[in-house]
Computed example of a mutant assay.
Amino acid sequence: MSWMRNAWYVGATSDEVGDKPLGRRLLGVRMAFFRDGEGRVQAVEDFCPHRGAALSLGRVCKGELVCGYHGLVMGGDGVTRSMPGQRVSAFPRIQRYAVEERYGFIWVWAGEADQADPATIPVLEWHNNPAWAHGGGLFHIKADYRLMIDNLMDLTHETYVHSTSIGQEEIDETPCKTTREGATVVTSRFMENIEAPPFWLDALRAIGVEGNPKVDRWQICRFSPPSHVLIEVGVALAGHGGYDAPDDKKVYSVVTDFITPEVDGSMWYFWGMARRFRPDDAELTERIRAGQGGIFTEDLEVLERQQQNLDAFAQRKLLKLNIDAGGVQARRMIEEHIARETASV
């Protein structure tokens, strides 16, 4: 298995689980999400114990899941409640999964439910914080989830893949530093007195900066298991302290990346950007979301074609350069966790 199981992954956004059940394959398992009578999200195997139908194709009635094939009623604990005209007390219990709704996401624990500790869900300080705004989306990508982690932990590709938005030669020319800080891998790059690329120039104009001033730019990528990458990004007017510049001299954001394997070779990618400037400007939020969506669409094409090549040339070994250090360390951390899980079985 190429992923951890005893960990919290984002399985869906809160608004995806409404009056109807949601079926989604995550970590090799088909799951059905629904809200119980108190509005809490529940998750069970997407498998009716009667004839194997997908429970997610049914409906929710009085906080329980009703199979759309023969009307079997399933509880959030995986126990069959009833079925019209049938005795169901001997029906086998299906798998339930620990879930937590937090920060606008539905977090799911794919391993043993009794080991799930909600305190280990990462804290997202911008959620419901009036000083911040957040917008994002979801992509289904036909590529191994670790390729996306590699991509996000090595931003030198921006110079080439995103040349018309956030890319610039200085990213290539400025060395990055990679460290391992406890359970986090950090790759950082700081650029001084450079031109702002189009995306960041537009952000500066949003806070009233005119012309094309020189800026200091930063990229600080943080990977934490099982597959989360948060990236501090932004620019400040040159000569005002860079990353530490006062808020009226900079535009500061955090790119949010929650990556959940579907099966080997495909993933669900929950992407977004939280910004700490002009938080009340809904039009700006949508403009940034659309721009970021276009940027990540470029990544999607690269990663899917990369996966096709890796499948076609499975005998080839990939090379590792100094710019790959963040992804290499992140993969190593994942492997260490998987090894510990395997040893405890």
Rank of each mutant, 00 (worst) to 15 (best):
T80N: 08
G39W: 06
K20A: 10
G76W: 04
R87C: 14
R81Q: 11
F33R: 01
G76E: 05
G68P: 10
P21Q: 04
F34V: 02
R35N: 03
V44P: 00
V29R: 14
A12S: 06
D36C: 07
P84R: 14
V41T: 03
W107K: 07
V60M: 02
G52H: 08
I106K: 04
P21I: 00
P21Y: 00
G104C: 06
D15Q: 12
G11Q: 03
A32R: 05
G75T: 10
F47N: 05
T13L: 13
E38D: 13
A54C: 07
Y69I: 14
C61H: 12
G71V: 14
L26Y: 04
V29F: 02
E101I: 01
T80D: 09
G75Q: 11
V41Y: 01
M74H: 03
E38K: 15
F105L: 08
V44W: 06
S14K: 15
R87I: 07
V66P: 04
R59H: 07
G58M: 02
S56I: 03
A43I: 09
M83I: 15
L57H: 09
A43H: 06
V79Y: 15
G71P: 12
L22E: 02
G28M: 01
E100R: 09
S82R: 10
Q42V: 09
A90W: 11
S82T: 15
V44L: 08
A90M: 15
S82E: 12
A32I: 06
V17M: 03
C61T: 10
K20Y: 01
Y69M: 06
G23T: 11
V88R: 10
T13V: 15
F47H: 08
P92L: 15
M31D: 03
Y9N: 05
E45H: 15
W8E: 02
R40L: 13
G75W: 09
L57I: 04
R25P: 01
R93F: 10
G104T: 11
S56G: 12
D46K: 08
L27I: 13
R40N: 13
L57N: 05
R24M: 02
R24L: 02
R51V: 14
Q86Y: 14
R87G: 12
Q95P: 12
T13I: 09
W8T: 05
C48P: 07
V73T: 08
V66L: 09
